[in-house]
Design a protein around this nucleic acid. Sequence first.
DNA 1: TATTGTTATACTCTATAACTATA
DNA 2: TATAGTTATAGAGTATAACAATA
Lengths: 149, 149
Amino acid sequence: MDTIRAGHQEAGELTAADGLIQLSRLVQELHARTSERHDLTPVQAKLLCVLVLGPRGMAELAQGFGVERAALTGLVDRAERRGLVKRSPVPGDRRARHVMLTDAGRQAATAFHADATVELEHLLDPLAPRDRERFCNAMDEIINAGGHP
Amino acid sequence: MDTIRAGHQEAGELTAADGLIQLSRLVQELHARTSERHDLTPVQAKLLCVLVLGPRGMAELAQGFGVERAALTGLVDRAERRGLVKRSPVPGDRRARHVMLTDAGRQAATAFHADATVELEHLLDPLAPRDRERFCNAMDEIINAGGHP
DNA sequence: TATTGTTATACTCTATAACTATA
DNA sequence: TATAGTTATAGAGTATAACAATA
C-alpha cells in the first residue's frame, strides 16, 4: 500500500503543492462519502447547500457552479425527479424559473450539512488549538486572495 | 457576484469546515484549468502523474484511485487512444498487463506537473514565509493523520 | 437583439454484473 | 477457487449547438 502517492517522500516531508493536492483529496473524499451516506451525489449535496440560502435562478446557479446552463438543466431535472427541489415561476419575468428546496430537500440539506461540518472539523483534530487557529487564519488569507495575484 | 458562497460571512470569518471546502475548491479548479491547458482531463492528468513513477498494473491503479477495475479499463482505453499510455504484458503472469507512459505521455506528464506545481505554490503567496512554513507543517499533520482518528 | 431556459447529441467517468483467461 | 482484466449496460455530469419564449 502507499504505492500510489505521487510525490510522497518521508512522513512530514511534503512539498507545498503535494500538501495542497493531498489535503484537497481528503476533503473531496470526505465530501463524497458523506454525500453517499445521505443518498446524494456530491453535486446534489452542493446544490442543496446553496439552495438553503434561498431560491436561485438557473443562470445564477450555473454561473455559481461554473457550468453551462444546459448542464444545470440536467442537474435540476435529476434533483427534481428525486423530490429534492422544485421549479417555480418568477413574478415579473416569464422566461425565468426559480429553483427552490422541497421539504424533503430542506431536510436532506440540513442533515447533510450538519454531518459534513462535523466530519470536516475532525480533520483538524490533529492540530493543537493554537496551530488550528493559525491554520484557519492562513486558509482565510489564501481564500480571500482567491488565487488572484 | 458572490451570491453563491455557502457559509460566506465577512472576509476573514470562515468556519474551519467552510475554509477546508473553499480551499479544496480552489485547488480543484486550479487542477481542472491546468489540465485543460494541457489538453488533458483532470483524471488523465492524475493518471499520468502516477505513471511517471513507473509502470503499474490495472488492479494496482484501480485500488490507488479508489475506483473499480472496470472503470480503470475505460480510463486507460481513452488515454491509450490519445497515445498517452500503452499496455504491455507482465513477464511471469499472463493475466496481468502493465500500464506505462508513451513518450508523448511522459512529455505531457512532465509539462503538466511542472505547470501545476507552480500554480499550486502561488496559492500560498499571500502567506508570510513563517506562516507558510507553519501552514505546510499543519497540512502534513493533517495528511499523516489521514482522517483516521 | 439579448437573455432565460430547454432539447439534442456526444463524451468522460463511474458502478454493477457477467464473462475470459490464467494462477 | 481466486485473481487480472475485459465487456456490457446504465447513470451522472459536462460541453456544444440549435431552439423557443420572453425581454
